[in-house]
């Protein structure tokens, strides 16, 4: 790997102040727990999907900045750890529109059961756990 040329310190200018909440994706989003509107864990933020730009294509000046379209979960966790990339048809998306807040956890404004991300939990509940006696009762 070629060695990077460090910029002279005086060339680094003080950052412009951003209005509104500032999120660094790696720091504030990736790997955080996602809770639904009732506080039930749904999944973790395994990756984040952006709108545009076309990868590797020159970006014309004045192009509108990309924004977060969805939080991703599922197979993207495996490829993030071991490399590669699943086809985007395999992404399990939690659209940004249902995200209600970002703090130590990402909270959603909807119930877990309404999301694709909870299909395995629902499947295991309905096919295994609910069929064992006592599975639907509070512990005593």
């Amino acid at each position: 790997m070629r060695k990077a040329k460090p910029l002279p310190a005086q060339d680094i200018k003080p950052a412009p102040r951003q209005a509104g909440l500032v999120l660094d994706a790696q720091l504030h989003l990736l790997d955080r727990q996602i809770l639904d509107v009732d506080g039930v864990p749904v999944t973790t933020v395994d990756d984040v999907e952006l709108s545009g730009p076309a990868p590797g294509e020159p970006i014309p000046e004045g192009t509108e900045a990309p924004h977060i379209t969805a939080l991703l979960t599922g197979a993207v966790l495996g490829t993030r750890i071991f490399g590669g990339r699943p086809p985007s048809s395999r992404f399990i998306r939690i659209p940004w529109e249902v995200v209600a807040g970002v703090d130590t956890v990402v909270s959603l404004g909807v119930r877990a059961n309404s999301l694709d991300a909870s299909w395995l939990e629902r499947w295991m509940r309905d096919q295994i756990i609910a069929k064992i006696p006592g599975g639907r009762h509070d512990p005593e």
């Binding site: 395995l120 295991m124 756990i129 509070d138």
Partner: peptide, 8 residues
Amino acid sequence: RRPAEAAR
């Protein structure tokens, strides 16, 4: 939680 609410 009930087992059904923490199935996995």
